[in-house]
Design a protein around this nucleic acid. Structure first.
Lengths: 332, 332
DNA sequence: CTGTTAGCGCGTTCAT
DNA sequence: ATGAACGCGCTAACAG
């Protein structure tokens, strides 16, 4: 920067200003500086800038998996909003593991992000403590934690799942099973199961028709295996609710393979409105949540909080509930 | 750090050492320091460390899209390798746009990454210049650039596609069409089309049977539309090669919907071995590349180069060609 | 609109 | 095995 400054005949401070958005620099000076930058191939060093300005421009984002189009969409939404402000996302995947989340939180904090977005409201006590002590805005997404750390953008997975079962009931289904992951690692999956159970009970339908399969994310293959178990165990089953569209898709493909008509023999519904559900044959009934919107809103709330911090106002924790929608398609 | 040092009765330098892997600190001192760290809830500030050590511990990774399981797998592979060494991935998505790539390269370099991994061998001249001038190891992946910048981990998309067409020919297919994106933005897609054309010519099959659809990534929906065009335009068509599994999947589902048997009426093949292809009905013939391996190897090569740099050896540019495999499944 | 001074929180380097 | 002095490259704060 000193070289650029020398070449442009100004001080480094003026170069610094010219290279920022808000820099109050005369047009002529800026032109000379940018020319010098170009000639020297100079690239600003933000890590040094971060040290002196005490703002790194990083936003840490923790999702269960980037290899899941729902979370990838959310991450994109966050990135879109954040990019505009010249901030940079630090993405981490927890693999649905709160221990791993704790470790990632620690690693991320080491980079001094200006804010952090975490998926889920479940954390280890230590992770929770670190998040609270970090002194930066925190946004928990994709869930409605009972005790939010700070801001929240999410919805009730249980309510959504319950609404889906009610809709199936209205369509005439009476023997409704559930296919989901075995462990309690995936709290959203667990919530969906809860909503299913609540609905079954409310409606007085036969209970206990649940297949639990391996560690989340339970995927296409396990959906296929589960539907076979379900039908073999309870041959009168007329519908199956799956913890996600991926397992619903696997279940439907397995039904084709065995000559079980969907929805003729059995109706199948998923969760998440993945792209596959819109184009599968039959198209899959599901619960749609606007994943990108979750990301956009989380990003906006974070930016607002950051702005508050900069103006030395105390940010007010916000909770934003995004809508979900049961989408009926051909599979039920 | 000064507070930790005071509490542990040592200098900050000793704290710094205790917090690194290689730190030469006595067991007793380290124990006291870690205790102080825990009591004070101290978190190391790597951005400050980066400034003085001149190593940020960042590795920039540019992929066309994170919402594509192939690239997500590669990103995971890179992260796995890189994490072990305490490095942190800075992920960016170019949206298959080399202008956007140029902008991202600039943004990333601003963070002073220790190395950078870019997808594809096509770059704007300015991006190329910036990558070369950055003075850090560069790895180009997923392609075999004619003029590599530095290291390469990839394969020939054209060869892979060509092999697929030859395999279809062996199975008896003679009227083979191609479904892909319209623009030249996706260089891997363009390469696959090239390989298809080469094979068609070598085998003396009827040419011109190509449907080009919108901007990449062409996806499930466009696959469905394209197969209809293809069959209506050339009713004697007996097979279609799709630029990716997603479009192949869309094509197959559309065929189901219209009562065109796959592979009875028409054989359909994809590219990429996405999970959907393994579980769709019928399972989809495709070209498999080990995406995670591309990531792992790219990460390893980068780490090797970083090690060379640290030991002040000049790293030798390496080119690693990963294997591909034509996988025949039920759809052909 | 521009410059000066000081310092961000560490790690390097050298000394002990 | 440990410590002291210094500086990494930039920006905040203030002055002009």
């Amino acid at each position: 920067m000193a070289e650029v400054a020398a070449r442009a005949g100004v001080s480094t401070m003026t170069v610094s200003r010219a290279l920022k958005r808000d820099g109050a620099v005369s047009e002529e000076t800026r032109r000379r500086i940018l020319a010098a930058v170009e000639e020297l191939g100079y690239v600003l060093d933000l890590s040094a800038g971060a040290l002196s300005s005490k703002r790194t421009g990083f936003v840490a984002v923790l999702v269960p998996s980037i290899n899941n189009s729902n979370f990838a969409d959310t991450a994109r939404g966050i990135t879109e909003v954040i990019d505009d402000q010249g901030l940079q996302v630090l993405l981490g995947a927890t693999d649905y593991d709160i221990e791993k989340e704790e470790h990632l939180v620690q690693t991320m904090l080491t980079r001094r992000p200006d804010g952090i977005i975490v998926t889920d409201g479940r954390h280890t006590p230590r992770a929770r403590r670190m998040l609270q002590a970090a002194g930066i805005p925190v946004v928990e997404i994709w869930d409605l934690p009972a005790e939010p750390i700070d801001h929240v953008v999410g919805f009730s997975n249980a309510e959504a799942s319950r609404a889906l079962v009610h809709r199936l009931y209205q369509k005439g289904y009476r023997k409704i099973g559930f296919i989901g992951g075995a462990s309690r690692r995936d709290s959203r999956g667990a919530d969906r199961r809860l909503g299913y159970l609540r609905a079954i009970e409310e409606l007085g339908l036969p209970v206990g028709r649940t297949i639990a399969f391996g560690d989340p994310p339970i995927s296409v293959e396990q959906g296929g295996q589960a539907i076979v178990h379900l039908i073999e165990q309870w041959p009168d089953m007329d519908a199956a609710v799956c913890v996600s569209d991926l397992s619903a898709f696997g279940a439907i493909m397995e039904c084709h393979r065995r000559g079980w008509a969907v929805p003729g023999r059995i109706g199948i519904a998923g969760f998440g409105d993945f792209e596959v559900s819109r184009w599968a044959w039959p198209r899959i009934t599901t619960v749609a949540v606007n994943c990108r919107t979750i990301g956009l809103e989380a990003g906006r709330i974070l930016l607002g909080a950051l702005d508050d911090v900069q103006r030395k106002r105390t940010p007010m924790p916000a909770t934003l509930i995004v809508p979900f929608e049961v989408i009926e398609r051909e599979s039920t």
